[in-house]
Design a protein around this nucleic acid. Structure first.
Lengths: 340, 340
DNA sequence: CTGAAAGCGCTTACAG
DNA sequence: CTGAAAGCGCTTACAG
């Protein structure tokens, strides 16, 4: 490929001027010279080498994203929103899929550090993610889940406990006498938040409610397998609230296979609220995370990112549709973000 | 961050030796010196700068992927499979989501060229994709859809027409007297292939079949909107075969809203066959594309990639489940790949 | 087996 | 307004 030197030669000028033209600075270039450079570049089909540029300039104009499972539509939507936000700032988003594998996650982290991404947005699969590779390299990180106190990473999340509680409270308000929580793996941090929210909701109910918790991986396959077994039992719950939409889809599928009607025999609530949830059979009631705002805020924090980590909590929204027992779709007002 | 010079200084040697150690060549290094270098690197937390390496070495060890819609699970699975294949070769996969937008696609192409990815896997949203930016830069491309004759890009696909025909033939074999094709946008290349396959199937049926074609965008939202209207009419078809699973999900949703039972009132076939299709309500019969093999073949072609473009056609598989009227899930043998 | 030096393709003070 | 030159952090012939 043609280099800046080739262009400079053909235009009868220096590489410095070629650079000034392509970067609109930092020095002025006469209109005449600029025209010659652009013509030469056009003719040679010149494309500046971003590697050389980054090496010299000290910025790669790229932000890395690490997600646990790119086949999960929630992360797909998230990647889309982050790409929008990054491109709006002139950056490229590099997406790494850790495929729910810790070694793979570590590989991607190493690759991002070696490629000197300017910043990183991360959804780790580890309970206590190690951000040290990034911090040692001076690369700011924002996690899209709660982080340990004292961690160097910022975070942008919703209040999962409050949201889980809101979801469960809604099922309580329907008057269901037995409600189960289909949670993630028992010991995970996220599972603790969903559990606390769930308990707070059912404990405050007027009539006593029979409750239980079942755990599955965050996949429709695993959730369906569990539910097929669990919902076949005579003491199955009247309603289920799930820690993710993925698990809710598994429950919907299992209910269908078992001949249970949703919501007449079993009410179901999801959690995440991607666009797909509106097209489930039946339409899935869920807690919607504000993906576009999460993405904008994350990229914004990284752009500023100086000094102490910031922990932002954004509002969520209850999206009530058919699966919980509500009729036509209705969307309840978003709770305001709690004070930071 | 520490550089190779810092490491060399601390180890009392030269940057050349640091390079030899970290690359295991091309020169030998004595065990003693190697140990010193590794100790120094460890102490300084040295991470080689991949930009500098690539600039000097001439390879970035990265392959770019451009997909139309990362929120579509088919492309999510594809990205996952390609990442597996790339990492197995020591490369990083960079994922760009064109978000069904031609300008965005062009931006990503430019970004990949500037970053000098070694090769590109592409699913373009354009009818006649322009690969010239890549070919001018000497970057080999494989498209995962048919490409124009004379194009510089290789391709890895299934035989869409034959697969569409197999899907429709299966519905014919159920004896349905009216079958519709829910196709993509009418004028697209892909739509032509689905249309020809569909027609070949219904024309060879023993009894006459009432047929029709409806078009929607490749999204559950648009497919559902169309289907809600269309399937409410008295002349609605007995069975629908769709150009993508996404559209089939929209049909399943619309059928549910209209009170139509699947498959008793309406049989449905999808096309793509991601993992999610098995968990639809009801489980979706579909044509499964061999994603892992597509990914391996694509990365393999790119690694070899010398000379003329190659056009590979892989086999597909009919995945018969509940939605078409088949009982328990059964998977029919994969047709062999036609001769190249 | 090891070191000094050129080169990859940019950017940017430094002179003019 | 423009050019010659140093430097970003690597790799790799070239000498020894």
């Amino acid at each position: 490929m043609a280099t800046g030197r080739d262009v400079a030669q053909l235009a009868g000028t220096s590489t410095a001027v070629v650079s000034y033209v392509f970067n609109n600075g930092p020095r002025n270039v006469s209109d005449e010279t600029r025209a010659k450079v652009l013509a030469a570049a056009e003719k040679l089909n010149y494309r500046p080498n971003a590697l050389a540029r980054a090496l010299s300039f000290g910025r790669t104009a790229s932000v890395g994203l690490i997600v646990p499972d790119i086949a999960n539509p929630f992360f797909g939507e998230l990647a889309r929103a982050l790409e929008d936000a990054a491109i709006a700032r002139g950056d490229l988003l590099l997406i790494g899929d850790s495929a729910l594998d810790e070694d793979r996650e570590a590989q991607i982290i190493a690759a991002f550090v070696e490629r000197r991404v300017d910043s990183v947005v991360m959804v780790s699969i580890r309970e206590h993610p190690d951000f040290s590779a990034f911090t040692q390299a001076g690369i700011p990180v924002v996690a899209l889940h709660p982080v340990d106190r004292g961690s160097a990473a910022s975070s942008v999340t919703i209040d999962y406990e409050a949201a889980a509680r809101a979801a469960a409270e809604h099922l309580v308000s329907h008057g269901y006498d037995s409600i189960a929580l289909l949670n993630g793996p028992y010991d995970s941090v996220g599972a603790g938040q969903h559990r606390r929210g769930f308990r707070a909701a059912v404990e405050r109910a007027d009539a006593p409610i029979r409750t239980s918790e079942v755990n599955s991986a965050t996949s429709r396959a695993d959730a369906a397998a569990r539910a097929l077994d669990w919902l076949a039992r005579p003491d199955r719950p009247r309603a289920v609230t799930c820690a993710t939409d993925e698990q809710a889809y598994g429950v919907l599928h299992a209910a269908h296979r078992l001949g249970l009607r949703v919501p007449q025999d079993l009410a179901v609530m999801g959690f995440d609220g991607t666009g797909h949830s509106a097209y489930a059979v039946p339409a899935l009631s869920t807690v919607r995370q504000p993906i576009p705002r999460i993405a904008e805020r994350a990229v914004g924090l990284l752009a500023e990112a100086r000094g102490d980590p910031v922990h932002d909590v954004l509002g969520y929204e209850l999206e009530l549709r058919e699966s919980c027992g509500c009729g036509a779709g209705m969307s309840y007002a978003a709770p305001a973000a709690p004070p930071a």
